[in-house]
Design a binder for these strands. Structure first.
Lengths: 167, 167
DNA sequence: TGCAAATGGTTTCATGTGTAACTATAACGT
DNA sequence: ACGTTATAGTTACACATGAAACCATTTGCA
């Protein structure tokens, strides 16, 4: 590897006079990305999501956002776009676009709410369901593969930790 | 709220063991996003990263990718672009673009490697360091805020779990 | 009623991001 | 030495994404 790269601090010449690593200097010291929580989460999240997306992305020409929309419609039919947005934690623009594609591809049906003409009523079509039948098990399987790296105790802690971090 | 949306499966009567719910149907059942690991990681990661980015994003006109590059250059000076890419888990295109902006803004200096004309040698400039001095403590602070939601035991498990999931 | 404010949803624009193609230099094998 | 292959980095293109402007409808209220 690169023997030429050495840490900036704790090196041969502590340029500016520092008695030692005071609380302040530690605070200002370079961040070790590999131990920095936001960075680690970002990497992990991308890795996991990408692994799953690879399964259906190209095969069904289905984006992550679209899949998420389908997933909530599989659970709750007749939702409006806004409700889909809430349940997917996507913004309404993203949902609007995902729906445009899904409806265009005949995977989701959209019709007007009977009493509120602004609102749409969304459902998976037969074709949408068919895709869901295939993709949902794949997604579960990938999740399982990830979780299998942990033992039972760790899985429990992970759940608990995620709950607390989100809340 | 939406009182009209009810779960498709699993109705009001929480039947313990559904006769019809064989292993196969469970496998095909809609995914509960809020319990689905990839989804939760994605939300959490975005939330955390965004909170931190909000601190410097506009104030310094500094993107997340640029900040990551600066962070590794603060630790290891004289890196090449490729080495930066390795250490940030970004691809080389992203690094190239981040560097273009950073160099343009006078935050990073780039000069040619003496023996390999393809390679660049990168360092933070005075100005780059000045920004780092401000942003690094802010980033740490945000991380701390997140981790403070956990107790000591949970923090230890989190570390262990992240290690195992990454490895 | 009628009019201002709120809501559902789409469109627009500016920006970010990934893939593949490209340039320049260096390394390797003969 | 010379041509092939590999490597560092940039550019070009296509596509995703977010913020704000926008249109239609509904709600709240004088």
């Amino acid at each position: 590897m690169s023997a030429s790269t050495k840490p900036k601090f704790a090196s041969d010449k502590p340029t500016v006079a520092e008695p030692a690593a005071t609380a302040t200097t530690r605070e200002h010291a370079p961040i070790e990305l590999e131990n920095f929580l936001p960075y680690r989460l970002s990497i992990l999240s991308n890795t996991v999501s990408q692994a799953i997306a690879d399964d259906y992305q190209q095969r069904y020409d289905l984006g992550v956002t679209e899949w998420r929309v389908m997933a909530v419609l599989a659970r709750f039919d007749g939702l409006s776009a806004r409700e889909v947005a809430e349940r997917t934690a996507m913004d309404k623009v993203a949902v609007s676009r995902a729906l445009a594609r899904l409806v265009g591809a005949g995977r989701v049906s959209r019709h007007m709410h009977h009493s509120d003409k602004r609102r749409s009523v969304l459902d998976l079509t037969e074709e949408g369901w068919a895709i869901h039948e295939v993709v949902a098990p794949m997604a579960r399987q990938r999740e399982r593969e990830v979780l299998n790296k942990l033992d039972e105790q760790e899985r429990i802690w992970l759940n608990r930790i995620l709950d607390k971090l989100q809340g």
